[in-house]
Amino acid sequence: MRRATLAAVALATALSTAACTSPSHDPVATAAPASPQPAANVQGVLVLRVQNLPQVGTVVVDGNGYPLYRYDKDSAKPPTSNCMDDCWMKWPPVIDTGDVRIEGIDQAQVGSFIRQDPTKTRQVTIGGWPVYRYAGDAAPGQAMGQGVGNVWYAVTPQGKKAAAPPANGAAANNPGN
């Protein structure tokens, strides 16, 4: 009798866990916009690390090597995102998965806040600034978003704008908001 009860409890636990973690029931999985970067960072472990990219200098990249960006129209105190609607498609926010691992960044610089949009997801901040990926970065290590519209910049480990000029002059002339 005891074995049957334990088996029933184990089966119920497994079924409820599967139901809670399926993509159709996971608010983070359904809230994140489509982007060319691998979706591995949307669920599970989010890795943030420091990397020196020749075109922008020392910046923060995700675990796959894609640089992260900050938006001059956002604010750091308090953290506020002004990248909404169509902006999301080009600049997907970096979502806090609950398991953020940092490498080479002062832990005090990394935080998150709840986005004030319909998703109410928790977005990662560096130095208080909300951070994003750029859909135009087709490969790890690219920084095509640097200087876009004179408002998007790769983010340093302190939350500052990367000072290096854009990798190509065309990016600065592309007001991709």
Rank of each mutant, 00 (worst) to 15 (best):
V148C: 12
P118H: 02
P130K: 07
W129F: 09
P130E: 06
M144V: 01
R115C: 00
R133V: 02
P157V: 10
T121V: 01
G159D: 11
Y134W: 15
K161M: 15
D117V: 06
M144Y: 12
Q123D: 11
T156R: 14
P130S: 07
K160Y: 00
D117A: 07
T156A: 10
A163N: 03
D137R: 05
K120C: 02
K120L: 13
G149I: 03
G147V: 09
P157L: 03
Q142I: 00
G127T: 14
P118V: 02
F113L: 12
A167C: 14
V151W: 06
N168H: 12
G149D: 13
G128N: 07
V131S: 05
Q142H: 03
Q116I: 01
V151Y: 04
T119F: 00
T125S: 04
Q142R: 04
W129M: 15
Q116D: 15
G147R: 02
S112L: 07
P130H: 05
P166L: 10
N168G: 03
A135H: 04
A164V: 02
G111T: 11
K161C: 13
W152R: 03
F113Q: 09
Q142Y: 01
A163L: 12
G127D: 14
F113M: 10
Q123C: 04
W152Y: 01
A163C: 01
D137I: 03
A154F: 06
G149A: 11
P165W: 09
G111E: 10
V110R: 03
D137H: 06
T121Y: 00
G111S: 13
V155Y: 07
Y132T: 02
P118L: 01
Y132V: 09
V124C: 02
Q142S: 06
W129K: 14
A162L: 06
I114W: 01
P130C: 06
A167Y: 07
W129I: 00
A162H: 08
A135G: 08
G111K: 10
A143S: 15
R115Y: 04
W152H: 07
I114V: 15
G111N: 12
I126S: 12
Q146K: 09
N150S: 12
Q142F: 01
K120T: 08
G159C: 10
W152K: 02
V148I: 15
W129A: 14
G149P: 14
D137Y: 06
A138I: 00
N168V: 07
Q158I: 01
D117Y: 09
Q146A: 10
V151C: 03
V155L: 04
K120Q: 15
Q123M: 08
A162R: 08
G127N: 14
A163R: 05
K161Q: 15
I126T: 12
A154M: 04
Q146Y: 11
Y153D: 12
M144T: 13
I126G: 12
P118Q: 03
Q116Y: 01
S112R: 06
G147Q: 00
K161F: 12
F113P: 09
Q142N: 11
A154R: 05
P166G: 08
P140K: 07
Q142G: 01
A139F: 09
G128H: 10
P165S: 15
Q146R: 10
G141V: 06
T156H: 12
R133L: 14
